[in-house]
Design a protein around this nucleic acid. Structure first.
Lengths: 223, 223
DNA sequence: ACCTGAACACCGTTCAAGT
DNA sequence: ACCTGAACACCGTTCAAGT
């Protein structure tokens, strides 16, 4: 006759949510490499087994943290804008900002693109492209092309964050790369040497959006 | 007065090249996870320290293996074609084939896009786009957009390979994904449910090329 | 039902010691 | 100069034991 199935819950009880929170805090503060089960147990003042009670393994935990960040970013961007193109742009920029704030998400996203987070992005993009009038194969190709491009950025952000742990400032990072490019062999890499000049003072966000716009322009042109 | 600085070389002596060869063999045959220093020492019948004498660490070894595969793929594709667009297409398809044959390259490429292999691709793309008449910022944006798109594919190929270790056949893999998509909530994922139909019998290579063509069309349109 | 924490099976990397 | 292989400092994960 006792209908309540829930045990009384201590306010500090461990839960999947609290574990994900702690994982995100560690990832944001110290980066991918710092997220170990030992660091988690220390922060949560518990044992490893307790975490495994709520989460099947590290891969799943990372998928959950990524889903949280991407889900929040997607929620923040409106699904209905003045035009489908602008809705895609908004979504893309929202993702860019999320990846910049949490670069470790990029590593996870490009490692497991077929998980919930990647599918969420694909779904959102696809809906807009449908509104643009694309169908069947064209729709499929255009949506996955946009996703691939975004995943490519994701990997780059993650890689940049890994390098930036030693070289703190972004400008320092860029000028280091620019220097490396300038130092390349002129015969083998004439283009990169040239590009090194542009690299120093470019705007990542604008550059990313430019790629989205190229794809959108191509989609419009090939319709 | 002895000018020869080289010690006589045993034919079976360890060398960076032989280590890279062995690493590629393991990666191709058993996948990313199987490449450990212990596996390498067994295959090369040596000790761990011997490998470290020739290679600074695992990351560098992976960079070398990737450089080998990407370098070969780039060499195989002609730099001068009927048109810059076709040269970009050829390069992209060459990379696609290389990634399909060695999916672990995708993981490395998307993890470290700023290493030699990524730069090689960027250089090759950039040269063609220059021939197309692009300059400065447009050139920079277009080249990096194409690279990002390719890196996005790279991550996907790697991820697919990781999943495929359990599910062997490609069609089985795709139909599993298609099933998952079909099972998604109709309200939340209407687009993916629809796409699931297309997914089963699509052509990866054609799909990848379609994305390249969208970017090229966008580049031409925005010129 | 949920948690503890020692133990297990593995890593990449180092280094004193050999040739 | 090049190689050996034991040892070190880590991992993710398991599991008997507790409450």
């Amino acid at each position: 006759m006792v209908t309540s199935k829930r045990a009384p819950q201590r306010s500090d009880a461990l839960s999947k949510e609290r574990i994900i929170d702690a994982a995100i805090e560690i990832l944001d503060a110290e980066g991918e490499a710092a997220l170990t089960f030992r660091a988690l147990t220390t922060r949560l003042a518990t044992g490893a087994g307790a975490i495994y009670w709520h989460v099947p393994n590290k891969e799943a935990l990372l998928a959950e943290t990524t889903a949280r960040i991407i889900g929040d970013a997607a929620t923040r961007t409106a699904d209905d804008g003045p035009s489908p193109q602008n809705a895609v742009r908004d979504l893309a920029l929202g993702l860019f900002d999320a990846l910049e704030a949490h670069p470790w998400v990029g590593a996870q996203l490009s490692r497991e693109p077929w998980q919930a987070s990647g599918l969420l992005i694909l779904e959102r993009i696809g809906r807009q492209l449908k509104a643009l009038g694309l169908v069947k194969n064209d729709l499929f190709n255009a949506a996955t092309a946009l996703l691939s491009y975004i995943l490519g950025l994701a990997g780059q952000q993650a890689s940049r964050a890994r390098l930036a742990t030693s070289v703190t400032s972004r400008t320092a990072f860029l000028s280091t790369i620019a220097e490396n490019w300038s130092a390349l062999d002129a015969d083998e890499h004439p283009f990169l040497r040239e590009l090194a000049v542009e690299l120093a003072d470019h705007d990542d966000r604008a550059q990313f959006l430019a790629g989205i716009d190229l794809l959108l322009a191509g989609i419009t042109a090939s319709r």
